[in-house]
């Protein structure tokens, strides 16, 4: 029994992943954002559960004669310019905003891991070419790229918006992957795997990436937050989702023009968006510190 416990303890010490878990599980700043995010994910998955708490659950059931009316019975957050219930819309808007954040980060992460690993592991001129390719994407004006990409994709769906944002989010992540892969490339266990004659793909997926991906995943959490904000800005410029889609970005972009007359139409979606992003950034910070103890403060 004691032997087992000891073995487990040693294992926990040697495996990077377990060490991170041991660090974060004691921190309040890990659990609070996680709880907030869990609630938001539930909202996004099942908006019908809570959307109808105060009245109708239909976000598109609008009463134009009640345009921009502040909080009233049945409409705790008031009604927006079209007379739709702000509460129900905020609840139903969670799905699109979270989905854009997740999809975009996933796509960007896949591209970043492919390109970053190639550049970092192979090195040499492959590295140079890929680094310059990354530069091209970083130097390209975002607006022009976004408009052209949106037009060639044709529609304005969660997926197409995610793709467009991912097109400009991957370079930063790719640079990070490259750096961490380079750091693990010459580690002794990688040398050992090479000496044993494992194929490169196996070395990469079993030895290099598991040890290099940690910091990148932590930063990716921050990216999800950044993307959710970016989606709302894109919508503000008229390049994001369009009605009849429902998203926080769309609500904020519509509300800002009449902010003075109807502040509640901006404040409530704003609070939800800020809470989401705040949780993601805090979580990302905690994870990053845990993965990289040297950077911990």
């Amino acid at each position: 029994m004691t032997d087992q416990v000891l073995a487990q303890a040693v294992e926990e010490d040697t495996l990077g992943g377990r060490g991170v878990w041991a660090t974060v599980r004691k921190r309040v700043l890990f659990w609070v954002p996680l709880a907030v995010l869990a609630v938001l994910v539930l909202l996004a998955a099942f908006p019908g559960w809570v959307g109808g708490w105060f009245g109708s659950d239909d976000p598109r059931a609008c009463d134009l004669s009640a345009s921009a009316r502040p909080s009233s019975p049945g409409h705790p957050f008031g009604q927006d310019l079209q007379g739709c219930d702000v509460y129900t819309n905020v609840v139903h808007g969670a799905r699109a905003s979270l989905a854009v954040g997740l999809f975009c980060t996933l796509i960007a992460l896949v591209i970043a891991v492919l390109i970053g690993t190639l550049a970092g592991y192979v090195g040499g001129w492959t590295d140079s070419v890929l680094a310059r390719l990354t530069d091209v994407f970083l130097g390209f004006p975002f607006l022009l790229g976004a408009i052209v990409a949106l037009n060639s994709l044709g529609d304005r769906s969660v997926l197409s918006i995610s793709l467009v944002l991912a097109l400009f989010s991957w370079p930063t992540l790719a640079r990070m992957v490259r750096t961490t892969v380079r750091a693990t490339r010459d580690a002794e266990y990688v040398q050992a795997a090479k000496a044993m004659g494992f194929p490169t793909l196996r070395i990469l997926t079993h030895y290099v990436l598991p040890n290099a991906i940690g910091p990148v995943l932590a930063v990716a959490t921050l990216t999800v937050g950044g993307v959710i904000v970016a989606e709302s800005t894109l919508t503000f410029l008229g390049l994001g989702l369009r009605p009849p889609s429902i998203s926080w970005g769309l609500q904020l972009a519509t509300a800002q023009s009449r902010f003075q007359q109807a502040p509640h139409t901006l404040i409530y979606p704003g609070i939800f968006l800020a809470a989401t992003v705040l949780s993601l950034i805090t979580l990302g910070d905690v994870l990053r510190d845990a993965v990289n103890p040297k950077g911990r403060s």
Binding site: T233, L252, L273, A274
Partner: peptide, 9 residues
């Protein structure tokens, strides 16, 4: 806090 508010808001 500031990073979680879109610039146009």
């Amino acid at each position: 806090l500031v990073a979680s508010v879109p610039i146009f808001v």
